[in-house]
Amino acid sequence: MEDIEHIPKELKLIDAKGIRLDGRRADELRPIKIEAGVLKKADGSAYLEWGNNKVLAAVYGPREAHPRHLQDPAKALVQCRYNMAPFSVTDRKRPGPDRRSVEISKVISEAFSAVVFVEQFPRTSVDVYIEVLQADAGTRCAGLTAASVALADAGIPMRDLVTSCASGKIGGVVALDLNKDEDNFGEADCPMAIVPRTGEIVLLQMDGHLTAAEFDEAMELSIGAAKQIYELQRDALRRRFASVAEAAQREAEREPPREEPPREMPPEMPEDLPPEVDDL
C-alpha cells in the first residue's frame, strides 16, 4: 500500500503504555456516529461514520425478486451488494465489483439471512446496498452495522439487529477495531458480526496469525464493543422514529389500523368507462 512511507519500520503500533498511534487504548473503539432514514428513494437507509470511514446503506424491499428464476416460493432472498466508490480509497479503485467486494457482499447477505424473517415474504428479495464513500479499514463492519439500521428503518421484520466489529493484533498486542495503518502493519485482523441479544456469531473472517488464546481475547474485545455499537444503532432508530411514535400511539390505542374500513369515502367515481363499454 502506498501509505507505507509515513510509518518508519521500527515504529511501534502500540507503545509500552498500551497507547496506539491514534491515541487509543487497545480496547478502545474509534468514534462512531449513526443516522437512520437519510435517503428519500430507499425504503430504509442509514449513514454511518466510524473513525474515518463514511458509509451509506440503503434497503429496497421486500420487492419482487428479479430475475424470476431466483424467486424462492417459500421465502425472501436477502441480497447485499457492498461497493466502494472509486474515490473512497487512497489509490483510485476502478468502478464496479471486484473479487473482494463480491465476497464481502456474500458473507454480509448470509449474516442478515440469519435474522430476517424471510418466510414472511415468499418470492421477494430484500436488497441491501452498501456504498463505502470513504474507507479507513473496517469498512465491512461499518457497512454491515449501517445496513442493519437501514433494514430496521425499512420495517423489515427480524429477530434482532446485527452488529459488527473487528479486533486484531498489532505490535504483539490484541487490539480492538484496527485502523488502516494498523490493518496494514498489524499481525492479524478478525472481523465478526453478532446477534447481540443471543450471542450468535453470523459473520466471522480472520487473516494473519493468532494463537487460540489471542483469538479468545480478540473475540472478547469485539463482543464487548458490539454491545456499545448496538446501543448506537438502537439510539439512531429511536431518534429517527421518536416524532412519529407518540402520534402513532394514539392510533394504536384504538382498533388496530388494518381494521379501519375505507367506508368513509367511496369516491364518486367519474364517468370514465371507455365508450365501447356502454355498447356492451
Partner: peptide
C-alpha cells in the same frame, strides 16, 4: 395490546 395479543404497530415498511 388487544384481545389477548401483543402487537407491534409498524412505523415504516412496504
Amino acid at each position: 395490546e388487544r384481545e389477548g395479543f401483543v402487537d407491534v404497530i409498524p412505523l415504516s415498511g412496504r
